[in-house]
Amino acid sequence: MNIIETHNLTKSFGSVIAVNDLTISVRRGEFVAFMGASGSGKTTLLNILACLDTFTSGEVFIDGHNLAALDEEGRRVLRANKIGLVFQQFHLIPYLTALENVMLAQHFHSVTDEPAARQILGDVGLAHRLHHRPGALSGGEQQRVCIARALVNEPPILFADEPTGNLDEENECNILALLQDLHRRGRTVVLVTHNPDLAARADRIIRLHHGKVFEP
């Protein structure tokens, strides 16, 4: 069964068509890489699938829910429950510690659970960094906090938009290993990247070009 499905999905910003009549699907538990040059519509597509953005036409189904039928509140609830997000720029709250950043996701999802937050930070190898603010963490550590934050509510789908774009090679490997591990444990992982070496580790690559699927 497909956990993500789009049919003729189109998103335009004025005259710019960022996603153009796109029909794709991702199976539950699959590890898929979206690849494409800068400006090919990867982030726009990801934001729509992550219920963060609206679209112009077409249909999108996330875990069986028709996004077109949802209002902002409906998208919010779906996002909070089904989706974990990892960003290239990390987007950690600078005045909260690693632990608090993770607990914030619990807070907006339901209620905070400090032991669970500690556990998940331990799982990404940050048990010794719980009470550091993002400013005191390396890029690789910050991205691992991000991943912990994305996972703490146990969403079935993880979206990672160029998660290693700001990291060196060693940290890139670490993060990728984390994603692969998550995939092995049954999560659906969607990785956006323009690095072919990273994309090669996925089950399947979907190539985008000017907002369309590009079949070489």
Partner: peptide
């Protein structure tokens, strides 16, 4: 702006 956008991405209501 990023901070508030992030909170919404995490599921925060606007009224939060």
């Amino acid at each position: 702006a990023v901070e508030f956008a992030l909170q919404q991405a995490l599921g925060a209501r606007r009224r939060a």
